[in-house]
Amino acid sequence: MKLPQALPRGLLLIGLGLGPMLAFAGVPENAPNAGAPYSAKGADTCLTCHEDPEVVDLFHTAHAQPNDARTPFGKGGLQCEACHGPGGNHAKRVKKGESRPSMIKFGRTADTPVGVQNAMCLGCHEKTAVANWHMGPHDVNSVSCAACHDSHKAKDAVLARATQPDVCYTCHVAERSQFQKVYAHPVRQGKLACSDCHAPHGTVAQKQLVRATVNDTCYECHAEKRGPLLWEHQPVTEDCSTCHAPHGSSNPGMVKLRGPLLCQSCHSQQGHPSFGYGPSGLPGNAAPATALALGNCMNCHSQVHGSNHPSGSSLTR
């Protein structure tokens, strides 16, 4: 039998389009209330019991905007059940001795599987800011959205620059220490948040950076380093983190290793670049070495990020 030309392609398109659509709606199969009916009155049913301040603070958040049809409380929205799943059984009178049917719960210690929690969030947010959630380490490590976000709070701590780091530090404990070093970006002072550099919802970029590369992320604040320059310092063009420790360092300039050893990890030219500078070269001794104290190698080669001066080939001008 010869099939009409358009039919198979049409069916394929329908399959590609409709199949996913059908598969996507509703709550995950392993949700505690999968397949349950929705409540009779929506949020009015829920709020009959759940009237605590920490619950109703939700109405001061982005999730509860009655004029925005995209939010759970917009026109036609499933209100509380948009996130917690159908509550028809949960809201029913429970016989003595029976436990109340469970809903989808959120948070680090919630008994709802992390995958189910996150599926509810991704149902709306996957197409927006968290498109690469599944590529990020937070998904890999089964971190729930609610481990960081408190969507019922009018002021979600992780969304404010000053309070966000404390949320991140609960897991990224080493970073709390690093930002207390003498030379560090101003996270401790509340002027920079983790999300100014990192995209916590996943990205294809390395280290979950907000821009495609390390350098492009740094240029967000340090655009003067973008260049190009006449005399470029090759590693500078590739990766700022070759020399810098962005979470903080005990060395001036947040460099990973104090000069001149940092420079001598690459430069070995005969003469002063190759000398082993011991403590006898410090000020106060008979012959202080120019390349040791103060700016060390940068006492002369101060244009370490590159130079645009015609005589700057040695990065001195």
């Binding site: 009155k41 709020l47 009959t48 109405f59």
Partner: peptide, 10 residues
């Protein structure tokens, strides 16, 4: 019919 009468919107 989900009137959201108890919703204390800001």
């Amino acid at each position: 019919a989900w009137a959201c009468k108890k919703c204390t919107f800001a």
